[in-house]
């Protein structure tokens, strides 16, 4: 019997939990990772792998077509597009993932508290969240950034504020249904404290919908982030940034379409990859859910 227990414990401690295997055998997750991992590598290594200095202007080489000395061509100031895209990945991913991390940090506790407390507390917290949600996402981001100065941290913060109520909503509804389960009542019957019930009984069982929601939101956060920098409310020059690159390219599309095409493609692939991973996560973790609200 002793051996029996120990072998059980071992399998509990197996280094790779089965859910990771299920994720890695999901087609969408794999395709998403194939696109997203290189983006992450670009974001982390940035200047060290960029073939040229992304800020180095060279007026003689402006509007260069792809394939020559500059693999993807140059922009209106003769800067290397490939290098700018590589370095620009950092800002884009930082804003996308950072803002959702912030939204999770803010939204999850609120949702847990509201869903478990029910009644007045729930009503009050959720009405507050509703107010934030009823301002269209881009407008709220714009409003916050119009007041704060534009830099990476503020953009991340603004998008985090935009998405925190949505995370809170999902957390709340998962918490609400989890707290109807009799294991929660069993814990109450044992006289467990509220913090134990919230964080030890309920939280482990509501992570799936929260993770799924968060991962689906990353794509939207990236879109909002680049939209804001497209409007000139992003990090601003000289730091390369995909949204701002597209804004600049707009004035020069008739001279060189590549200037527009490359950052658009990078953006599209990144958003698609996060969407694929989000959907794959939903398939694996939360198979009953089929859709969500924006």
């Amino acid at each position: 019997m002793a051996t029996d227990t120990s072998s059980q414990t071992e399998s509990d401690r197996s280094p790779i939990p089965p859910v990771v295997w299920r994720l890695l055998s999901n087609r969408r997750v794999v395709i998403g990772l194939v696109f997203l991992v290189p983006m992450f590598v670009m974001a982390v290594l940035g200047e060290t792998i960029a073939p040229h200095d992304p800020t180095n202007t060279n007026v003689q080489m402006r509007y260069d077509s792809p394939g020559g000395k500059f693999l993807l061509g140059t922009d209106h100031l003769g800067r290397d597009l490939l290098s700018r895209i590589i370095v620009g990945a950092r800002t884009t991913l930082l804003i996308g993932f950072g803002s959702i991390a912030l939204a999770l940090a803010g939204g999850v506790p609120i949702g847990l508290a509201a869903g478990y407390a029910k009644g007045r507390t729930d009503e009050l917290l959720m009405r507050l969240m509703d107010i934030v949600i009823s301002i269209p996402t881009l407008l709220l981001g714009l409003l916050i950034l119009a007041v704060l100065s534009s830099n990476v941290i503020n953009v991340t913060l603004a998008i985090g504020i935009v998405y925190a109520p949505r995370i809170a909503r999902v957390t709340r509804s998962a918490t609400l249904s989890a707290s109807e389960e009799s294991y929660v009542m069993a814990a109450q019957a044992r006289g467990e404290s509220n913090t134990h019930i919230l964080f030890r009984e309920i939280l482990p069982n509501v992570t799936s919908p929260i993770v799924v929601e968060g991962s689906v939101r990353v794509g939207y956060a990236i879109m909002i982030g680049t939209s804001l920098s497209f409007l000139g409310l992003g990090t601003g020059p000289p730091t390369p940034d995909w949204g701002f690159m597209i804004a600049e390219a707009r004035d020069h599309i008739f001279q060189t379409p590549w200037f527009l095409v490359w950052p658009s493609l990078a953006l599209l692939l990144t958003v698609m990859a996060t969407n694929l991973i989000g959907d794959g996560l939903r398939d694996v973790l939360d198979p009953k859910e089929t859709g969500d609200s924006r």
């Binding site: 939209s227 804004a247 707009r250 599309i253 599209l268 692939l269 958003v271």
Partner: peptide
């Protein structure tokens, strides 16, 4: 899926490039 991943400023600029010149 592809449509879901195209931010509107990208689609707008591309449409402008393709259909107005």
């Amino acid at each position: 899926y592809i449509g879901l991943s195209v931010p509107s400023f990208v689609s707008a600029t591309l449409l402008l490039l393709l259909f107005t010149s």
